[in-house]
Simulated assay, not measured.
Amino acid sequence: MDLYETFSSLKSFEAIKSIDMHTAGEATRIVYDGFPDLRGSLLDQREEAEKKYDDLRKRIILEPRGHFDMYGAILRPQTELVESGEADIGALFIHNGGFSTMCGHATIALGRFLVDTSDENAFPNRSNLRLDTINSTAEVRIHVPCGLVVVTVPTNSDGTKSDPSRPVSFLSTPAFTAARDMEVEIPTNVRWKELGSRSSINFDLAYGGAYYALISAKELGFTNGLKEIDLLSVTSCIRKLKPFLASHPAVIDAIRHPDDSRLSYLYSIMIVDSNSGYHPEAAVSVESGLCYFADNEIDRSPTGSCVSARVALAYDKRQIELGEKRAYNSLITNHFEEGAFIGSVAEVLNESTIIAQVEGYAFYIGSSLFIWEKGDRTSREGFIFDQCV
């Protein structure tokens, strides 16, 4: 197509190229070309991108090129762990509100993409991947802002392409319980209708590459769990609750990351229902969840990094044993009865800290060439429709 070639070649269009995938219905827009160079450690690169190139993050994620619940990953071929040989490549994660520190569904998608690509500009270390010819898998070590995740990708017999019929799995960074059974008083101005006459809630805090508040649907007053929900009512509740918890002194004190203060913030609220969910044969037990993250995005997938956090919490509560497989569902995986993430304890580091293994399937849905044409004020940084009306 002549216009495609024109847009690709002329610098005046500021072309950004991506491969789009989904994992259990949640999109990952993988940016492999066109994002500016970044310097320093990966966390430093994340800070630089936030300060200098947030307009590009918005352009990639928001309307008219994306939407409120869009998600993406930006390849970073050079990081300190890539230079030391510990990682094959780095990645930054982007959403409607900024840059996150970990993403499981995107990690699963990245695993397939990094095996399938032969573009050395996008992935200079592709030829160095470690192949297991007996099990037909490839190991990809990805440096993400919270640390190193090791991804196992099923492949064809010679390791040149991924096999979409088998699940991708990853080993998490250390996942742990931050607080159990925390009780917090809810001020009158924060309360929602379904809370009724109650004035407090109980919840857990756990870390799986980001910090999550894990709250049962019934604890929030939604008595039917996640089987039958009024999404507008739940969203209204979370819009009040999430900023309140994120700024609560007890929560802030509980989520001080031991390694880096830049990881110390409440990323998400996961509403949990342990009494419902699609049950794959491979799993011993099952639960469902509804994840609100960033600027109240709703995750279509079961949220891989939160699966790591939930596995750590379940192990801490003696609800799951080493190697035992539990299925974690979202509203979408329950609807289609496929795509549940399988989580398990792969390694125990101490009583409350583990390495989780998370399995899931990712699929390709397209490729994109995004441009900005000079004079186009509407799409230069993108927009959120609700904020314009």
Rank of each mutant, 00 (worst) to 15 (best):
E26A: 09
A122K: 10
D2T: 11
N156L: 05
T173F: 04
G111M: 06
A314L: 11
L10C: 09
V82T: 13
D295V: 04
R130V: 15
R65D: 00
K325I: 04
E194D: 07
T303P: 00
T6I: 14
E80G: 07
L131M: 15
H22T: 05
L38M: 06
V190G: 04
S344D: 06
E183R: 15
R57P: 00
R29E: 01
L220N: 03
N156C: 13
G85Y: 10
S368Y: 01
Y278H: 12
I255C: 01
K240W: 02
F341N: 07
F244D: 00
F336N: 09
E359K: 15
Y212Q: 01
E86C: 04
E5W: 09
Q78V: 15
A362L: 03
D204R: 14
R29T: 01
G225D: 02
S274T: 12
F341S: 05
K58R: 14
A210L: 11
S330Q: 02
K227C: 03
S247N: 12
G97N: 12
H248Q: 01
A109K: 09
I16C: 03
V272I: 15
E5L: 14
D260W: 09
V168H: 06
S157E: 14
E26W: 13
A24W: 06
T160G: 12
F35G: 02
Y212D: 00
S305H: 09
F68D: 05
Y364E: 01
A362H: 05
F35C: 03
D158L: 13
M70S: 14
G40F: 07
S308H: 05
N135A: 14
L171H: 13
H105Y: 08
R130G: 00
C291F: 08
H335I: 08
P187K: 11
V151W: 11
N296S: 05
E63F: 07
G90I: 07
L81E: 04
N96H: 09
R239Q: 03
T23A: 08
K374T: 10
G208F: 03
L114V: 10
V82C: 07
N128K: 15
F7M: 10
S352H: 15
V307C: 14
K374H: 08
I238V: 12
V251E: 02
I108M: 04
L214C: 08
D204T: 11
D132S: 08
L226T: 01
H257T: 10
G85I: 10
K17C: 04
D33A: 13
F293G: 06
L75N: 06
M102P: 00
T79K: 11
P64Q: 10
R262S: 10
R191A: 07
N125A: 11
D69G: 03
V286C: 13
D69H: 13
R112G: 07
P164E: 08
A217V: 02
A327L: 04
T177N: 02
F293L: 11
D230L: 08
S200L: 12
R300P: 00
H105T: 08
